[in-house]
Design a protein around this nucleic acid. Sequence first.
RNA 1: UGAGUAAGCUGGGUGAUCGCGGGUACCAGGCCGAAAGGUGGUGCCUGAGGAAAGUCCGAGCUCCGCAGGGCAGGGUGCUGGGUAACACCCAGUGGGGGCGACCCUAAGGAAAGUGCCACAGAAACAAACCGCCACAUUGGUGGCAAGGGUGGAACGGUGCGGUAAGAGCGCACCAGCGGCCGGGUGACCGGCCGGCUAGGUAAACCCCACCUGGAGCAAGACCGAAUAGGGGAGCGGCAGGGCGGCCCGUCCUGCUCCCGGGUAAGGUCGCACGAGAUGUCAGGGCAACCGGCGUCCCAGAUAGAUGAUCAUCCAAGACAGAACUCGGCUUACAGGUUUACUCACGGC
RNA 2: GGCCCCAUGGUCAAGCGGUCUAAGACACCGCCCUUUCACGGCGGUAACCCGGGUUCGAAUCCCGGUGGGGUCA
Length: 115
Amino acid sequence: MRQKKQSMGCFNILKKRRDFRKTYAGGKVVADGHLVIYYKANNLGISRFGFSVSKKVGCAVKRNKVRRILKEICRKNQEKFLNGRDYVIVSRPGIVGKSYQKVSEILLSNLRRLG
RNA sequence: UGAGUAAGCUGGGUGAUCGCGGGUACCAGGCCGAAAGGUGGUGCCUGAGGAAAGUCCGAGCUCCGCAGGGCAGGGUGCUGGGUAACACCCAGUGGGGGCGACCCUAAGGAAAGUGCCACAGAAACAAACCGCCACAUUGGUGGCAAGGGUGGAACGGUGCGGUAAGAGCGCACCAGCGGCCGGGUGACCGGCCGGCUAGGUAAACCCCACCUGGAGCAAGACCGAAUAGGGGAGCGGCAGGGCGGCCCGUCCUGCUCCCGGGUAAGGUCGCACGAGAUGUCAGGGCAACCGGCGUCCCAGAUAGAUGAUCAUCCAAGACAGAACUCGGCUUACAGGUUUACUCACGGC
RNA sequence: GGCCCCAUGGUCAAGCGGUCUAAGACACCGCCCUUUCACGGCGGUAACCCGGGUUCGAAUCCCGGUGGGGUCA
Protein backbone atom coordinates (compact mmCIF):
# COMPACT_ATOMS: atom_id res chain seq x y z
CA MET A 1 0.00 0.00 0.00
CA ARG A 2 1.27 3.41 -0.84
CA GLN A 3 1.33 5.84 2.01
CA LYS A 4 2.09 9.48 2.43
CA LYS A 5 3.88 10.65 5.48
CA GLN A 6 4.53 14.20 6.52
CA SER A 7 6.70 15.98 9.02
CA MET A 8 6.19 19.14 10.96
CA GLY A 9 8.82 21.40 12.34
CA CYS A 10 7.57 22.54 15.70
CA PHE A 11 7.04 19.26 17.41
CA ASN A 12 8.59 15.88 17.01
CA ILE A 13 7.65 13.80 14.04
CA LEU A 14 8.25 10.29 12.85
CA LYS A 15 10.26 10.16 9.64
CA LYS A 16 11.94 6.82 9.27
CA ARG A 17 10.22 3.92 7.65
CA ARG A 18 11.52 1.63 10.41
CA ASP A 19 9.94 3.86 13.07
CA PHE A 20 6.58 3.47 11.38
CA ARG A 21 7.02 -0.26 11.11
CA LYS A 22 8.02 -0.55 14.76
CA THR A 23 4.92 1.34 15.82
CA TYR A 24 2.64 -0.76 13.59
CA ALA A 25 4.20 -4.02 14.78
CA GLY A 26 4.79 -3.49 18.49
CA GLY A 27 2.11 -1.01 19.40
CA LYS A 28 -1.51 -0.88 20.38
CA VAL A 29 -4.44 0.19 18.19
CA VAL A 30 -7.57 2.28 18.59
CA ALA A 31 -9.80 2.69 15.56
CA ASP A 32 -13.21 3.68 14.24
CA GLY A 33 -14.62 4.35 10.80
CA HIS A 34 -12.66 7.55 10.32
CA LEU A 35 -9.23 6.99 11.90
CA VAL A 36 -6.78 4.39 13.14
CA ILE A 37 -4.33 5.37 15.87
CA TYR A 38 -1.27 3.22 16.52
CA TYR A 39 0.82 4.05 19.58
CA LYS A 40 3.88 2.62 21.30
CA ALA A 41 6.21 3.68 24.13
CA ASN A 42 9.53 4.96 22.75
CA ASN A 43 11.68 5.48 25.91
CA LEU A 44 12.62 9.01 24.77
CA GLY A 45 10.50 11.01 27.23
CA ILE A 46 8.85 12.92 24.37
CA SER A 47 5.96 12.24 21.98
CA ARG A 48 6.40 11.82 18.24
CA PHE A 49 3.69 11.87 15.59
CA GLY A 50 3.38 10.32 12.16
CA PHE A 51 0.58 10.73 9.64
CA SER A 52 -0.43 8.32 6.93
CA VAL A 53 -3.02 9.12 4.27
CA SER A 54 -3.25 6.52 1.52
CA LYS A 55 -4.44 7.09 -2.02
CA LYS A 56 -7.67 5.28 -1.17
CA VAL A 57 -8.73 8.37 0.78
CA GLY A 58 -8.90 10.60 -2.29
CA CYS A 59 -7.00 12.84 -4.64
CA ALA A 60 -4.03 14.97 -3.66
CA VAL A 61 -6.08 18.00 -2.61
CA LYS A 62 -8.30 15.92 -0.31
CA ARG A 63 -5.34 14.08 1.21
CA ASN A 64 -3.52 17.34 1.88
CA LYS A 65 -6.60 18.82 3.55
CA VAL A 66 -7.03 15.83 5.85
CA ARG A 67 -3.36 15.76 6.80
CA ARG A 68 -3.23 19.48 7.52
CA ILE A 69 -6.27 19.35 9.79
CA LEU A 70 -4.87 16.37 11.70
CA LYS A 71 -1.52 18.08 12.07
CA GLU A 72 -3.13 21.25 13.41
CA ILE A 73 -5.21 19.33 15.93
CA CYS A 74 -2.18 17.44 17.25
CA ARG A 75 -0.16 20.63 17.49
CA LYS A 76 -2.83 22.47 19.46
CA ASN A 77 -3.57 19.52 21.78
CA GLN A 78 -0.08 18.22 22.48
CA GLU A 79 -0.68 18.36 26.25
CA LYS A 80 -3.51 15.81 25.90
CA PHE A 81 -1.17 13.13 24.57
CA LEU A 82 0.91 11.18 27.08
CA ASN A 83 4.62 11.85 26.75
CA GLY A 84 7.09 9.17 25.75
CA ARG A 85 5.01 7.60 23.03
CA ASP A 86 5.09 7.37 19.23
CA TYR A 87 1.73 7.94 17.56
CA VAL A 88 0.85 7.03 13.98
CA ILE A 89 -2.50 8.36 12.81
CA VAL A 90 -3.86 6.61 9.71
CA SER A 91 -6.80 8.15 7.86
CA ARG A 92 -9.67 6.22 6.39
CA PRO A 93 -11.87 7.33 3.48
CA GLY A 94 -14.78 8.34 5.75
CA ILE A 95 -12.90 11.35 7.05
CA VAL A 96 -12.89 13.26 3.76
CA GLY A 97 -14.96 16.42 3.80
CA LYS A 98 -15.25 16.68 7.59
CA SER A 99 -14.63 20.11 9.11
CA TYR A 100 -11.88 20.91 11.59
CA GLN A 101 -14.33 20.75 14.52
CA LYS A 102 -15.75 17.38 13.46
CA VAL A 103 -12.31 15.84 13.00
CA SER A 104 -11.21 17.28 16.34
CA GLU A 105 -14.13 15.61 18.13
CA ILE A 106 -13.39 12.29 16.42
CA LEU A 107 -9.68 12.35 17.21
CA LEU A 108 -10.08 13.41 20.86
CA SER A 109 -12.77 10.81 21.57
CA ASN A 110 -10.46 8.11 20.22
CA LEU A 111 -7.68 9.55 22.36
CA ARG A 112 -9.81 9.13 25.50
CA ARG A 113 -10.38 5.48 24.61
CA LEU A 114 -6.66 4.73 24.48
CA GLY A 115 -6.11 6.41 27.88
C1' U B 1 -34.57 42.09 -27.98
C1' G B 2 -33.88 36.85 -28.79
C1' A B 3 -30.98 32.78 -30.83
C1' G B 4 -26.09 31.63 -32.18
C1' U B 5 -20.62 31.49 -33.89
C1' A B 6 -15.53 32.55 -32.79
C1' A B 7 -11.44 34.37 -29.88
C1' G B 8 -9.75 36.06 -25.11
C1' C B 9 -9.43 37.36 -19.68
C1' U B 10 -10.62 35.87 -14.62
C1' G B 11 -10.81 31.50 -11.23
C1' G B 12 -13.39 34.77 -4.04
C1' G B 13 -11.66 39.70 -1.80
C1' U B 14 -10.03 42.57 2.78
C1' G B 15 -8.19 42.78 7.94
C1' A B 16 -6.40 40.44 12.71
C1' U B 17 -4.11 36.36 15.84
C1' C B 18 -1.57 31.44 16.21
C1' G B 19 1.33 27.85 13.02
C1' C B 20 4.57 25.93 8.54
C1' G B 21 8.62 25.84 3.86
C1' G B 22 12.50 28.97 1.49
C1' G B 23 15.82 33.36 1.19
C1' U B 24 18.45 37.21 3.63
C1' A B 25 20.57 40.47 7.73
C1' C B 26 21.93 40.43 12.77
C1' C B 27 22.61 37.62 17.44
C1' A B 28 24.30 33.07 19.50
C1' G B 29 28.62 30.45 19.12
C1' G B 30 25.78 25.87 21.88
C1' C B 31 23.39 21.09 20.52
C1' C B 32 22.93 16.23 17.37
C1' G B 33 26.24 12.89 14.58
C1' A B 34 31.66 8.07 13.98
C1' A B 35 32.31 11.50 10.00
C1' A B 36 30.49 14.08 5.96
C1' G B 37 27.07 17.31 7.53
C1' G B 38 22.72 19.22 10.00
C1' U B 39 20.29 22.38 13.56
C1' G B 40 18.63 27.75 17.05
C1' G B 41 16.38 33.04 18.05
C1' U B 42 14.64 37.88 16.10
C1' G B 43 13.41 41.26 11.99
C1' C B 44 12.31 41.75 6.80
C1' C B 45 11.02 39.53 1.97
C1' U B 46 8.66 35.46 -0.30
C1' G B 47 5.62 30.83 -0.86
C1' A B 48 1.01 26.20 -6.26
C1' G B 49 -2.34 25.99 -11.42
C1' G B 50 -4.96 27.20 -15.94
C1' A B 51 -5.13 22.99 -16.05
C1' A B 52 0.10 22.12 -11.26
C1' A B 53 -3.63 16.46 -13.85
C1' G B 54 -3.30 12.42 -17.80
C1' U B 55 1.94 11.09 -19.16
C1' C B 56 -0.03 11.40 -25.28
C1' C B 57 4.01 13.94 -28.30
C1' G B 58 8.44 17.26 -28.80
C1' A B 59 13.05 19.22 -26.65
C1' G B 60 16.89 20.73 -22.97
C1' C B 61 19.97 18.11 -19.27
C1' U B 62 22.55 13.41 -17.43
C1' C B 63 24.59 8.54 -17.96
C1' C B 64 25.28 4.33 -21.21
C1' G B 65 33.51 4.32 -24.04
C1' C B 66 32.36 7.09 -29.11
C1' A B 67 26.65 8.09 -30.20
C1' G B 68 29.43 5.49 -35.69
C1' G B 69 27.41 2.60 -40.54
C1' G B 70 23.75 -1.04 -42.52
C1' C B 71 19.32 -4.06 -41.76
C1' A B 72 15.12 -4.79 -38.89
C1' G B 73 11.67 -1.99 -35.91
C1' G B 74 8.93 2.60 -34.72
C1' G B 75 6.78 7.38 -36.11
C1' U B 76 4.77 11.20 -39.47
C1' G B 77 1.75 11.66 -44.15
C1' C B 78 -2.54 17.77 -48.92
C1' U B 79 0.73 22.60 -49.63
C1' G B 80 3.69 26.69 -47.88
C1' G B 81 5.50 28.93 -43.55
C1' G B 82 6.69 29.40 -37.87
C1' U B 83 9.80 27.00 -34.18
C1' A B 84 15.16 24.50 -30.33
C1' A B 85 11.77 20.65 -31.87
C1' C B 86 7.01 18.36 -32.64
C1' A B 87 2.12 14.42 -34.06
C1' C B 88 1.87 21.57 -32.18
C1' C B 89 0.66 26.60 -34.26
C1' C B 90 -0.46 30.03 -38.55
C1' A B 91 -1.95 30.87 -43.65
C1' G B 92 -3.91 28.40 -47.79
C1' U B 93 -5.82 23.89 -51.18
C1' G B 94 -9.28 19.71 -51.88
C1' G B 95 -13.59 17.14 -49.52
C1' G B 96 -17.97 17.24 -46.02
C1' G B 97 -21.75 19.97 -42.80
C1' G B 98 -24.67 24.61 -41.62
C1' C B 99 -29.77 29.77 -44.14
C1' G B 100 -25.35 32.18 -42.12
C1' A B 101 -21.19 33.83 -38.84
C1' C B 102 -18.46 29.47 -38.97
C1' C B 103 -17.16 24.30 -38.00
C1' C B 104 -15.06 19.26 -39.13
C1' U B 105 -11.32 16.66 -42.02
C1' A B 106 -4.92 10.27 -40.30
C1' A B 107 -6.34 14.14 -46.87
C1' G B 108 0.42 10.44 -50.40
C1' G B 109 0.12 5.87 -53.66
C1' A B 110 -5.15 0.84 -55.31
C1' A B 111 -2.37 1.02 -63.97
C1' A B 112 4.56 -1.84 -58.34
C1' G B 113 2.97 -6.39 -56.22
C1' U B 114 0.18 -9.58 -52.61
C1' G B 115 -4.09 -10.48 -49.52
C1' C B 116 -9.31 -9.83 -48.16
C1' C B 117 -14.48 -8.50 -49.79
C1' A B 118 -18.49 -13.16 -44.83
C1' C B 119 -24.01 -14.17 -46.13
C1' A B 120 -26.75 -13.39 -50.57
C1' G B 121 -25.87 -13.56 -55.77
C1' A B 122 -24.73 -16.51 -62.23
C1' A B 123 -20.61 -13.42 -61.26
C1' A B 124 -16.91 -9.43 -56.17
C1' C B 125 -12.29 -8.47 -61.04
C1' A B 126 -14.11 -12.81 -62.98
C1' A B 127 -18.91 -12.94 -65.82
C1' A B 128 -24.48 -14.54 -67.71
C1' C B 129 -29.36 -16.94 -63.38
C1' C B 130 -34.14 -14.96 -65.15
C1' G B 131 -33.85 -12.47 -69.82
C1' C B 132 -33.50 -10.00 -75.22
C1' C B 133 -32.45 -11.16 -80.66
C1' A B 134 -31.34 -14.26 -85.12
C1' C B 135 -31.19 -19.21 -87.24
C1' A B 136 -32.99 -23.96 -86.33
C1' U B 137 -37.73 -26.15 -83.97
C1' U B 138 -38.21 -27.92 -78.98
C1' G B 139 -33.15 -30.52 -74.89
C1' G B 140 -29.47 -26.90 -80.11
C1' U B 141 -25.97 -22.98 -82.43
C1' G B 142 -24.58 -17.96 -82.39
C1' G B 143 -25.02 -12.72 -80.88
C1' C B 144 -26.20 -9.10 -76.63
C1' A B 145 -25.90 -6.98 -71.67
C1' A B 146 -31.01 -2.84 -72.07
C1' G B 147 -34.47 -4.64 -68.07
C1' G B 148 -35.25 -7.98 -63.50
C1' G B 149 -33.11 -10.07 -59.16
C1' U B 150 -28.79 -10.30 -54.90
C1' G B 151 -25.65 -7.16 -52.31
C1' G B 152 -22.56 -2.01 -48.67
C1' A B 153 -20.52 -2.24 -53.65
C1' A B 154 -22.27 -5.26 -60.25
C1' C B 155 -18.08 -3.19 -65.13
C1' G B 156 -19.38 5.06 -66.04
C1' G B 157 -24.58 8.36 -65.24
C1' U B 158 -28.85 11.00 -67.88
C1' G B 159 -31.04 11.90 -72.63
C1' C B 160 -31.27 11.46 -78.00
C1' G B 161 -29.83 8.69 -82.17
C1' G B 162 -28.68 3.87 -83.82
C1' U B 163 -29.63 -1.70 -84.16
C1' A B 164 -32.15 -8.17 -85.59
C1' A B 165 -31.50 -7.32 -80.29
C1' G B 166 -27.94 -4.42 -78.17
C1' A B 167 -23.47 -2.07 -76.57
C1' G B 168 -19.34 4.87 -75.89
C1' C B 169 -21.41 2.06 -81.51
C1' G B 170 -22.27 7.78 -82.46
C1' C B 171 -23.60 12.68 -80.26
C1' A B 172 -24.69 16.47 -76.01
C1' C B 173 -23.89 17.43 -70.81
C1' C B 174 -21.82 15.47 -66.22
C1' A B 175 -18.14 12.27 -63.54
C1' G B 176 -13.38 9.86 -64.14
C1' C B 177 -8.42 9.27 -67.02
C1' G B 178 -4.37 11.27 -70.12
C1' G B 179 -2.02 15.38 -72.81
C1' C B 180 -1.24 20.64 -73.95
C1' C B 181 -1.75 25.93 -72.72
C1' G B 182 -2.35 29.78 -68.88
C1' G B 183 -2.15 31.29 -63.41
C1' G B 184 0.14 30.07 -58.58
C1' U B 185 6.61 29.05 -54.62
C1' G B 186 3.13 24.88 -54.03
C1' A B 187 -1.26 21.85 -52.81
C1' C B 188 -4.31 23.18 -56.79
C1' C B 189 -7.43 26.17 -60.15
C1' G B 190 -9.21 27.67 -65.25
C1' G B 191 -9.45 26.58 -70.58
C1' C B 192 -8.82 23.38 -74.90
C1' C B 193 -8.03 18.57 -77.06
C1' G B 194 -7.98 13.24 -77.05
C1' G B 195 -9.17 8.15 -76.66
C1' C B 196 -13.46 5.72 -74.47
C1' U B 197 -13.13 2.81 -68.86
C1' A B 198 -10.18 2.05 -64.57
C1' G B 199 -14.76 -1.72 -58.13
C1' G B 200 -13.62 -1.16 -52.69
C1' U B 201 -10.06 -1.75 -48.73
C1' A B 202 -3.40 0.76 -47.23
C1' A B 203 -6.40 3.07 -38.80
C1' A B 204 -4.62 -5.12 -44.27
C1' C B 205 0.61 -6.41 -45.75
C1' C B 206 3.05 -3.05 -48.60
C1' C B 207 5.41 1.07 -51.94
C1' C B 208 7.11 6.24 -51.80
C1' A B 209 8.98 10.71 -49.06
C1' C B 210 10.83 12.51 -44.48
C1' C B 211 12.23 11.72 -39.17
C1' U B 212 14.27 8.25 -35.56
C1' G B 213 20.44 4.92 -30.78
C1' G B 214 18.81 3.52 -25.55
C1' A B 215 17.37 4.81 -20.88
C1' G B 216 15.69 8.29 -17.58
C1' C B 217 16.72 13.44 -11.97
C1' A B 218 14.64 6.97 -8.18
C1' A B 219 19.26 10.18 -14.44
C1' G B 220 23.80 11.30 -12.53
C1' A B 221 28.05 13.71 -9.67
C1' C B 222 30.58 14.37 -5.11
C1' C B 223 31.74 13.66 0.51
C1' G B 224 32.99 10.65 4.84
C1' A B 225 33.79 6.03 8.01
C1' A B 226 34.28 0.84 7.62
C1' U B 227 35.22 -3.51 4.65
C1' A B 228 38.13 -4.92 0.92
C1' G B 229 39.56 -4.35 -4.08
C1' G B 230 39.96 -0.96 -8.36
C1' G B 231 41.27 2.79 -12.40
C1' G B 232 44.31 4.75 -16.71
C1' A B 233 47.79 3.99 -20.93
C1' G B 234 50.20 0.61 -24.38
C1' C B 235 50.37 -4.36 -26.86
C1' G B 236 47.41 -8.15 -28.81
C1' G B 237 43.66 -9.92 -31.54
C1' C B 238 42.24 -16.75 -30.21
C1' A B 239 38.03 -17.63 -26.55
C1' G B 240 34.09 -15.42 -23.50
C1' G B 241 31.20 -11.11 -22.29
C1' G B 242 29.16 -5.83 -22.82
C1' C B 243 27.43 -1.65 -26.09
C1' G B 244 18.43 -1.32 -27.31
C1' G B 245 17.30 -6.59 -31.51
C1' C B 246 20.86 -8.64 -35.64
C1' C B 247 25.45 -7.72 -38.67
C1' C B 248 29.75 -4.56 -39.10
C1' G B 249 32.53 -1.90 -35.89
C1' U B 250 34.24 -1.13 -31.11
C1' C B 251 35.23 -1.81 -25.72
C1' C B 252 36.35 -5.08 -21.47
C1' U B 253 38.27 -9.76 -19.33
C1' G B 254 44.34 -11.46 -20.89
C1' C B 255 49.97 -9.44 -20.65
C1' U B 256 53.30 -4.99 -19.45
C1' C B 257 53.81 -0.20 -17.18
C1' C B 258 51.74 3.64 -14.22
C1' C B 259 48.21 5.67 -10.78
C1' G B 260 45.86 5.94 -6.47
C1' G B 261 40.55 4.41 -6.18
C1' G B 262 34.98 1.31 -6.78
C1' U B 263 30.19 -0.54 -3.58
C1' A B 264 25.20 -0.68 0.34
C1' A B 265 22.95 2.39 5.03
C1' G B 266 24.06 8.10 5.56
C1' G B 267 25.00 13.26 3.84
C1' U B 268 25.68 17.26 -0.01
C1' C B 269 24.89 18.76 -4.96
C1' G B 270 21.93 18.20 -9.37
C1' C B 271 17.63 22.30 -7.85
C1' A B 272 15.86 26.94 -10.60
C1' C B 273 18.43 33.19 -14.68
C1' G B 274 15.27 30.36 -18.14
C1' A B 275 14.05 28.57 -26.02
C1' G B 276 12.31 33.38 -18.62
C1' A B 277 8.33 37.06 -17.34
C1' U B 278 6.45 41.81 -18.55
C1' G B 279 5.81 46.63 -21.05
C1' U B 280 6.72 49.17 -25.49
C1' C B 281 7.71 50.28 -31.00
C1' A B 282 1.97 54.14 -35.98
C1' G B 283 9.30 47.94 -36.18
C1' G B 284 8.98 43.32 -40.08
C1' G B 285 5.09 39.70 -41.42
C1' C B 286 -2.09 38.46 -43.70
C1' A B 287 -0.84 35.41 -39.39
C1' A B 288 1.78 31.92 -36.28
C1' C B 289 6.06 34.37 -35.09
C1' C B 290 10.51 37.35 -35.34
C1' G B 291 13.53 41.75 -34.05
C1' G B 292 15.04 46.25 -31.16
C1' C B 293 14.72 48.87 -26.47
C1' G B 294 13.29 49.23 -21.19
C1' U B 295 12.00 46.91 -16.52
C1' C B 296 11.80 42.59 -13.19
C1' C B 297 13.73 37.97 -10.45
C1' C B 298 8.58 35.15 -9.77
C1' A B 299 7.88 28.13 -4.90
C1' G B 300 12.16 25.11 -4.59
C1' A B 301 10.29 20.87 -0.52
C1' U B 302 13.04 15.80 0.28
C1' A B 303 8.16 11.27 4.96
C1' G B 304 7.72 16.19 1.37
C1' A B 305 5.91 23.39 3.33
C1' U B 306 -0.55 27.00 2.49
C1' G B 307 -3.79 25.15 7.96
C1' A B 308 -6.94 26.95 12.24
C1' U B 309 -9.95 30.80 14.57
C1' C B 310 -12.55 35.51 14.21
C1' A B 311 -14.70 39.80 11.67
C1' U B 312 -16.70 41.62 7.07
C1' C B 313 -18.51 42.01 1.67
C1' C B 314 -20.83 39.56 -2.52
C1' A B 315 -22.93 36.74 -7.51
C1' A B 316 -21.80 32.27 -1.70
C1' G B 317 -16.55 30.25 -4.25
C1' A B 318 -16.06 24.80 -9.77
C1' C B 319 -12.10 21.48 -11.32
C1' A B 320 -8.28 20.79 -8.42
C1' G B 321 -1.81 20.80 -5.20
C1' A B 322 4.75 22.04 -7.86
C1' A B 323 8.66 17.33 -7.10
C1' C B 324 14.60 18.33 -12.89
C1' U B 325 12.88 22.18 -16.41
C1' C B 326 10.48 24.06 -20.74
C1' G B 327 7.00 23.96 -25.70
C1' G B 328 2.41 21.63 -27.11
C1' C B 329 -1.83 18.24 -27.05
C1' U B 330 -5.75 15.87 -24.32
C1' U B 331 -9.02 15.53 -20.28
C1' A B 332 -11.84 18.08 -15.73
C1' C B 333 -14.23 22.80 -14.55
C1' A B 334 -19.26 26.82 -10.67
C1' G B 335 -19.60 31.51 -11.92
C1' G B 336 -18.15 36.30 -13.80
C1' U B 337 -16.44 39.22 -17.92
C1' U B 338 -14.48 41.52 -22.88
C1' U B 339 -14.37 41.88 -28.18
C1' A B 340 -15.83 40.75 -33.19
C1' C B 341 -19.38 38.63 -36.31
C1' U B 342 -24.14 35.93 -38.12
C1' C B 343 -29.50 34.98 -38.30
C1' A B 344 -34.66 36.32 -36.90
C1' C B 345 -38.13 39.98 -35.24
C1' G B 346 -39.26 45.07 -34.04
C1' G B 347 -38.20 50.55 -34.15
C1' C B 348 -35.87 54.96 -36.50
C1' G C 1 7.95 11.24 -9.37
C1' G C 2 9.41 7.95 -13.68
C1' C C 3 8.61 3.44 -16.48
C1' C C 4 5.50 -0.89 -17.89
C1' C C 5 1.24 -4.20 -18.21
C1' C C 6 -4.03 -5.73 -17.93
C1' A C 7 -9.55 -5.28 -18.53
C1' U C 8 -14.79 -10.75 -21.99
C1' G C 9 -21.07 -14.03 -17.55
C1' G C 10 -20.60 -14.25 -10.12
C1' U C 11 -15.09 -16.61 -10.75
C1' C C 12 -11.14 -18.70 -14.10
C1' A C 13 -10.76 -17.88 -18.95
C1' A C 14 -10.75 -18.96 -25.35
C1' G C 15 -10.94 -15.46 -29.38
C1' C C 16 -6.38 -12.39 -33.30
C1' G C 17 -11.94 -8.21 -39.08
C1' G C 18 -17.50 -11.89 -41.12
C1' U C 19 -21.19 -19.14 -39.85
C1' C C 20 -20.00 -14.18 -32.75
C1' U C 21 -26.99 -15.09 -32.09
C1' A C 22 -19.30 -15.10 -28.27
C1' A C 23 -16.18 -21.55 -26.90
C1' G C 24 -15.23 -24.07 -22.38
C1' A C 25 -14.80 -25.04 -16.95
C1' C C 26 -16.50 -23.93 -11.91
C1' A C 27 -20.74 -21.52 -9.66
C1' C C 28 -26.36 -20.56 -9.82
C1' C C 29 -31.61 -22.15 -11.26
C1' G C 30 -35.09 -26.09 -12.98
C1' C C 31 -35.99 -31.30 -14.29
C1' C C 32 -34.36 -36.60 -14.27
C1' C C 33 -31.73 -40.43 -11.31
C1' U C 34 -31.76 -41.61 -5.61
C1' U C 35 -35.67 -43.21 0.32
C1' U C 36 -32.60 -38.45 0.84
C1' C C 37 -27.77 -35.89 0.00
C1' A C 38 -23.50 -36.20 -3.09
C1' C C 39 -21.90 -37.98 -7.98
C1' G C 40 -23.94 -38.37 -12.89
C1' G C 41 -27.41 -36.86 -17.11
C1' C C 42 -30.58 -33.03 -19.68
C1' G C 43 -32.03 -27.98 -20.17
C1' G C 44 -31.63 -22.76 -18.81
C1' U C 45 -30.09 -17.61 -16.80
C1' A C 46 -25.83 -14.64 -17.27
C1' A C 47 -20.44 -11.07 -20.36
C1' C C 48 -16.96 -8.05 -24.66
C1' C C 49 -14.80 -1.28 -19.04
C1' C C 50 -16.70 3.67 -21.40
C1' G C 51 -16.89 7.36 -25.66
C1' G C 52 -15.52 8.58 -30.67
C1' G C 53 -13.36 7.05 -35.55
C1' U C 54 -11.71 3.54 -39.88
C1' U C 55 -14.58 -0.45 -42.58
C1' C C 56 -20.19 -2.81 -46.03
C1' G C 57 -19.10 -5.01 -41.11
C1' A C 58 -15.18 -4.01 -34.76
C1' A C 59 -14.65 -8.00 -28.63
C1' U C 60 -10.69 -7.72 -32.48
C1' C C 61 -7.72 -2.04 -35.92
C1' C C 62 -6.80 3.53 -34.50
C1' C C 63 -7.56 7.78 -30.94
C1' G C 64 -9.18 9.57 -26.14
C1' G C 65 -10.88 8.45 -21.17
C1' U C 66 -11.92 5.20 -16.65
C1' G C 67 -10.55 1.41 -13.29
C1' G C 68 -7.03 -2.24 -11.47
C1' G C 69 -1.95 -4.17 -11.01
C1' G C 70 3.53 -4.43 -11.32
C1' U C 71 8.40 -2.22 -11.05
C1' C C 72 12.59 1.47 -9.97
C1' A C 73 15.79 4.56 -4.10
